[in-house]
């Protein structure tokens, strides 16, 4: 009787731990993670979403701080590599939207082999065959326009529509030198239409911004009424806040960007990193990503908002991480060649 009572109390106080599973091994890890006290997360997820997940984790595991550092995918990689060059071992978890980064990091033995709990049910596109990195979230790279400026009937419907000279001076693009999202987007479209497409697109004098999240703000403000790419989840969030923005999912295919996460081989807080990684792959957190952030995930039980298109209804364009890694420099160089900076 007394023991049941004790168990109830324990459960009440460690409620969040419950969904991570109450096995003995988990307890040891939790203790070790608490001793480490924090986890350092280099993330390319939009600032508000990154901070939200960090706060959720801190609420679930009091005593373990999340030190979140958000910047663009390519900057995340630059940070990690620059720090290693100076022998600084800071990052526990690396999360970017450029799957090629993980091929590179794995090759350089900078990743820890770790399979987060529950990912076995995820589709294969979310899993590294060697077990080093897993897709934490996915989103589409879509077209978006401002319906106050461009009427929906007139708005571009396909990628090729964007080449029409009538859009000269009206388009905005994000930058592959900053955003892994855009690196992926460009490779997907190059595989479809070749570099000629981007060469022609550049004739329309695009405004260049850095992050794949920035076009949403540019379109909503009306500075440029059409975004030729950008993170669909951020377009969606911007729309939900009441801004004038409509998303177009071209029928010829929409690039699907799966953003992997991995623990580094040099992680200074390995236990906290594992705990955090497991936490982010739980159904609860993945559901939050879908609900309030407008993301897609690999979790089979996650339900999506009614106003989001079903991935099964779209033609998805996917790229091979190996190819992305191999052609990374080419993508950045050609972009600068065509667009100027």
């Amino acid at each position: 009787m007394r023991r049941w009572w004790l168990l109830t109390i324990t459960l009440a106080f460690s409620g969040p731990v419950a969904f991570a599973g109450l096995s003995f091994g988990q307890d040891i890890r939790l203790e070790a993670a608490k001793k480490e006290g924090k986890v350092v997360w280099y993330s390319s997820l939009a600032v508000p979403s990154t901070e939200k997940i960090a706060k959720m984790f801190e609420a679930a595991y009091p005593g373990i701080k999340v030190e979140a550092h958000r910047t663009g995918s390519q900057r995340v990689l630059q940070r990690v590599m620059q720090e290693l060059q100076a022998n600084i071992k800071n990052a526990d978890i690396v999360h970017t939207s450029d799957a090629g980064h993980f091929v590179l990091l794995k090759e350089k033995n900078l990743l820890m082999k770790y399979t987060p709990a529950g990912v076995e049910k995820f589709p294969s596109g979310f899993k590294d065959k060697d077990g080093y990195y897993y897709g934490l979230r996915a989103s589409l790279s879509a077209i978006a326009f401002n319906p106050k400026v461009i009427s929906p009937t007139e708005a571009p419907k396909t990628w090729k529509d964007l080449l029409d000279p009538k859009w000269r001076g009206k388009l905005v693009t994000a930058h592959p030198g900053y955003s892994g999202f855009i690196t992926t987007h460009i490779l997907a479209l190059v595989n479809q239409y070749g570099w000629d497409y981007f060469k022609q697109l550049a004739q329309n004098k695009l405004m260049l911004v850095q992050s794949a999240n920035d076009p949403a703000q540019v379109v909503a403000s009306g500075e440029r009424p059409i975004a030729v790419n950008g993170a669909e989840y951020f377009f969606y969030q911007t729309q939900k806040k009441g801004n004038p923005i409509q998303i177009v999912y071209p029928k010829e295919g929409v690039p699907l960007v799966v953003s992997p996460t991995a623990i580094t081989s040099f992680a200074p807080h390995p236990n906290a990193a594992k705990l955090f990684t497991d936490f982010t792959f739980t159904r609860e957190v993945q559901q939050v990503l879908a609900d309030s952030e407008g993301l897609y995930t690999g979790h089979p039980e996650v339900r999506y908002p009614e106003d989001k298109p079903k991935l099964g209804d779209l033609k998805l364009l996917q790229v091979d991480p190996e190819e992305l890694e191999k052609r990374n420099q080419e993508i950045k160089d050609r972009f600068v060649e065509f667009f100027g900076a």
């Binding site: 390519q74 900057r75 630059q78 260049l208 911004v209 420099q329 100027g340 900076a341």
Partner: peptide, 22 residues
């Protein structure tokens, strides 16, 4: 102001040369 318009100055170019691979 210059990068959105698609041009660099020396300072932004030096900064860009630091991007990975540096």
């Amino acid at each position: 102001l210059a990068l959105p318009a698609g041009f660099h100055t020396i300072t932004t170019q030096i900064w860009a040369l630091f991007h990975y691979p540096p």
